[in-house]
C-alpha cells in the first residue's frame, strides 16, 4: 500500500463528500423549483439570482439553530440517529463508479473509491443500514407519532429490501458479476445493449423499490405527512434534522447513479460523451423523483404492503425464474 494510493483515495473521498453534500443542498432547491413549476407557483425567488442562494440561507439557518434534545428521549440513540442516515448514504457511494476512468498528466484516475468485486451488493447493503436512522430516531424520541413512523419504516424496510434484491437478481444472472464496472461494461455496445430492454420488468420493479428505499413520495410513510407531523423527525431541530435531509437527498442521487449504471447503460464505452450521458440519466432519475412527488399522493400503509407482497414479489420471482430458464436454454443451445 503506497503513499500515492492513500493520497489518491483521500482526495477521492473528499471530492465525493463535498460534491454530493453540495448537491444534496441544491437538491432541495431543485425540488422546490420543480414542485413550484408543476403547481403553477414560483418557488424560491428572493435570495440571490433565481433564488439560488436560498440553499445558503437554509444552511445557515439549520447550522445556527439551537440543537434541542427533548427531556424524555434516549439521548445517545437520539443523537446518533441522524448521523447514521447521513454517513451511510456517503459510505454507500464508495463502490459507485461516478465517471469513466480518465488520464490527467499521464496519471490514470479511476473515479471509484473502492472497486470491490461485490460492488452493487455493498451499495445496497450500506444504503439499507441508512434506514436505521429513521427507525432509531423514531424509537428514541418518546413521541407516539415518531414511534408510528419508526414502525412503518421497519415495515417498509423489511418488505422492499426483498423486491430490490429479487429484481436485481435477474440482470445480475445475465451479467454474471456483481461489480458495477462489469455491469457497465456489459452494456458497452450502446443504446440497444441496455439492460432496460432485456430486463424491463426488473427495471420497473427496482425503480419502484427505489422510491421505498429512499422514502420518497408515493411511499413517504416513514415521515407521515398526512398526520401533519414530520414522522421520525418530529422531535429534531437544527442540524440534526438537516443531517436526515442530507442523507435522504444523497441517497436519491446515489440510487439514481445505481439505476443509470445497471439498467440504462451507465457511462457506456467510457468516452466523454458517455460520461455526460451518465450525468443526464442521473438527472432524469432525480427529476423523476420530484415529478412523482408533484403528481402522486401517498399510498396507505396497507396498500404499500399489499403492493409489495402480493404484486411486486410474485412478479419479481417469476422474472427470475423466466430469466434463468432462458439463460439455460441459450447456453444449452450454444453447446
Amino acid at each position: 500500500m503506497d503513499v500515492a494510493f492513500i493520497i489518491e483515495t483521500i482526495v477521492k473521498i473528499v471530492v465525493i463528500l463535498s460534491v454530493f453534500s453540495a448537491l444534496a443542498g441544491f437538491g432541495t432547491y431543485f425540488e422546490r423549483k420543480v414542485l413550484a413549476f408543476m403547481q403553477r407557483r414560483l418557488g424560491p425567488t428572493h435570495v440571490g439570482p433565481y433564488g439560488l442562494l436560498q440553499v445558503a440561507a437554509d444552511g445557515i439557518k439549520l447550522i445556527t439553530k439551537e440543537d434541542i434534545i427533548p427531556q424524555n428521549v434516549v439521548k445517545p440513540i437520539f443523537k446518533i440517529a441522524p448521523v447514521i442516515t447521513a454517513s451511510t448514504a456517503f459510505m454507500a457511494a464508495a463502490a459507485i463508479p461516478f465517471w469513466p476512468e480518465f488520464t490527467v498528466f499521464g496519471y490514470t484516475v479511476h473515479p471509484i473509491v473502492a472497486d470491490v468485486n461485490v460492488g452493487i451488493l455493498y451499495v445496497l447493503a450500506v444504503m439499507a443500514i441508512g434506514l436505521y436512522g429513521p427507525l432509531l430516531g423514531g424509537m428514541a424520541s418518546a413521541n407516539k407519532w415518531s414511534l408510528l413512523s419508526a414502525a412503518r419504516g421497519a415495515a417498509v424496510f423489511i418488505s422492499y429490501e426483498v423486491i430490490t434484491g429479487l429484481s436485481l437478481l435477474a440482470p445480475l444472472m445475465m451479467v454474471g458479476s456483481l461489480s458495477l464496472i462489469d455491469i457497465n461494461n456489459y452494456q458497452k455496445g450502446g443504446f440497444f445493449d441496455w439492460l432496460a430492454w432485456s430486463q424491463p420488468v426488473a427495471f420497473i420493479l427496482f425503480w419502484i423499490a427505489a422510491f421505498a428505499e429512499t422514502g420518497r413520495t408515493p411511499f413517504h410513510l416513514v415521515a407521515n405527512d398526512h398526520e401533519i407531523v414530520d414522522g421520525f423527525g418530529t422531535e429534531y431541530s437544527g442540524m440534526r434534522w438537516g443531517l436526515f435531509f442530507i442523507g435522504e437527498y444523497a441517497n436519491m442521487f446515489f440510487i439514481s447513479f445505481v439505476m443509470a449504471i445497471i439498467f440504462l447503460g451507465g457511462y457506456g464505452d467510457g468516452s466523454i460523451a458517455g460520461a455526460f450521458q451518465l450525468l443526464m440519466k442521473v438527472a432524469f432519475f432525480f427529476f423523476f423523483f420530484l415529478w412523482t412527488r408533484a403528481a402522486w399522493p401517498d399510498v396507505r400503509p396497507d396498500q404499500l404492503m399489499w403492493l409489495c407482497w402480493k404484486v411486486l414479489m410474485p412478479i419479481a420471482i417469476l422474472n427470475v425464474i423466466v430469466t434463468g430458464v432462458v439463460i439455460l436454454i441459450k447456453t444449452q443451445g450454444g453447446m
Binding site: N72, V73, V74, V118, L121, Y122, L124, A125, V126, A128, I129, L131, Y132, L135, M139, A140, A142, L147, A150, A151, A154, A155, F157, I158, E161
Partner: peptide, 25 residues
C-alpha cells in the same frame, strides 16, 4: 456484505418485536 445485509434485516425484525412488547425509552 452478506453479513451486513442479513443482520441489518434480522436485527430490524428484533426492533419490531421490541416496539411491540416494551416501552423502549
Amino acid at each position: 456484505v452478506v453479513q451486513i445485509i442479513v443482520y441489518t434485516g434480522a436485527v430490524m425484525a428484533l426492533y419490531a418485536f421490541g416496539m411491540m412488547f416494551f416501552d423502549t425509552t
